[in-house]
Amino acid sequence: MTSPSIPGLRAEFGPAVERVLVSCGDTIVYVTRDRSHDVLAWLKDAPGHQFNYLTDVTAVEYRDSELPLEVVYQLRSLSRKADIRVKVALDKRAPLQVRSVVDLWRGADWLEREVYDLFGITFTGHPDLRRILMWETYAEGYPLRKDFPLRGHFSRAEQTRQALAANPEAHYSLEELSIAEAFDELPPDMRQRLARGERGYLK
């Protein structure tokens, strides 16, 4: 049985709701990439739906390389005790981008960073999109992608070398505290030093 929210969703967004299916009792809604944020915002606030709790954000890549990458949002309404799963399919040939939902749920912050880290999906509008589980200079790619071998791309020796070269306190600086916004707050001399590349370089 599909979720009772589906008719409302279809009425509100029409063609943006691509398809609806049920798997193991859970309703799955596929929405288009450009309307995903609107759909989620509507689901969060619309009276009668109120999926106010973001259970999870993740992504799925299928073994069949033709199939698109899916970003999965698990929503829950705490008051109505109902669930819905919203999926956004991303064509692998296009840039992997989707609107961030951090402005709706603060809890999405780290979840989206994790998806970015492990799948390489960019969330536009995310305040601080950095790698979270792997280190900042990790060079091998996105580990949960299917074209990423289980043991990584590099040899063990190279991995060890790179890991040891990664400075454990490299981010122990103001720049690190919040990379996205720190630069503007830096004192002018530090900004100049950064621009000169004394502590690193901007790109």
């Binding site: 400075n167 490299a170 996205a180 630069f183 502590r199």
Partner: peptide
């Protein structure tokens, strides 16, 4: 919001 990444030089602190 602009996204900037500052890459750190790989020098040991101190």
């Amino acid at each position: 919001m602009s996204l900037r990444t500052v890459e750190m030089a790989l020098a040991t602190p101190g």
